[in-house]
Design a binder for these strands. Structure first.
Length: 254
DNA sequence: GTAACTCAGGACG
DNA sequence: CCGTCCTTAGTTA
């Protein structure tokens, strides 16, 4: 997560900014410890995740390890990602790539899924109008300030989201109309998809980040389907397979 | 009740 | 600078 972007988006920043969306689906049950580093461009300052569910109010079956991937926003921009940056153009058409992650899961990566100008309009809206909070969460017995801003939006009637001892207040989609426009844009590129909640994250600068995690909360069901949309400056979005602990041996979880 | 888990942060190599 | 390991105690499986 590197992207020193403060509240002021410079022209330089903006010249370099696509929006992207990706989605993974299916159960992942790997036993390989091999780690897959998927470089995806994400943006810094503002990253939002749409968390879906076709399998919602489902009893969350106790498939402890279905989602064997972790995601992380890198704290730094690697040289490779710098090199990989293409020359942006506001007229570039979206590009779409489907990557087989194995075990029935796919990653669909769409660069510039929204037009340049529009993505910045959304960025500004989110930055200014979302009631961001920076909660205290609990990890490994310690409580610490979450290193990023958050806001949770969910359809009414859903089970509350809880992670790391934190239960965010659930706002409604109607509270922020532009969110529905973004959602519609997602439905358009991913026909048939349905999402019912959204966890927004805002990374204010190089020191904001999110650690490895699996998005395997029980409420997401046995085969979570996630769409992650990024606005703002570029950041890495890394996926890696979780180590499998089949043999009941020390699980490293990472 | 017991085992397993961890959306951070620090230490280490 | 970078990746990996280890922590740690309350909550959940």
């Amino acid at each position: 997560m590197e992207e020193r972007r403060n509240m002021n988006s410079t022209a330089a920043n903006r010249s370099n900014q696509p929006s992207s969306v990706g989605i993974s689906d299916g159960q992942i049950t790997n036993d390989e410890a091999e780690s897959l580093h998927k470089k995806k461009k994400c943006s810094g300052h503002e990253l939002k995740e749409v968390t879906g569910s076709d399998t919602f109010s489902d009893n969350g079956s106790l498939n402890k390890k279905r989602l064997h991937y972790h995601q992380e926003d890198q704290r730094r921009m690697s040289l490779t990602s710098l090199v990989a940056v293409e020359t942006p153009s506001s007229t570039d058409a979206p590009t779409r790539r489907t990557i087989d992650l194995g075990y029935g899961s796919d990653l669909i990566y769409i660069q510039r899924f929204l037009p340049f100008q529009q993505s910045w309009t959304f960025f500004d809206y989110l930055d200014k109008h979302i009631p961001w909070t920076r909660p205290t969460i609990r990890v490994f017995g310690r409580s610490c300030l979450q290193p990023r801003d958050t806001c949770y939006v969910a359809s009414s009637g859903l089970t509350a989201l809880v992670y790391s001892g934190y239960q965010p207040n659930a706002y409604l989609w109607d509270d922020f109309p532009p969110l529905k426009e973004i959602l519609d844009a997602i439905y358009k590129v991913l026909p048939g998809s349905k999402f019912n909640s959204l966890l927004l994250n805002r990374y204010k600068g190089a020191s904001d980040y999110v650690a490895w995690h699996a998005d395997d909360e029980k409420i997401y069901g046995p085969t979570p389907e996630i769409a992650s949309v990024s606005f703002g400056c570029e950041r890495d979005f890394v996926l890696k397979k979780k180590k499998h602990e089949e043999s009941s041996q020390g699980n490293r979880t990472f």
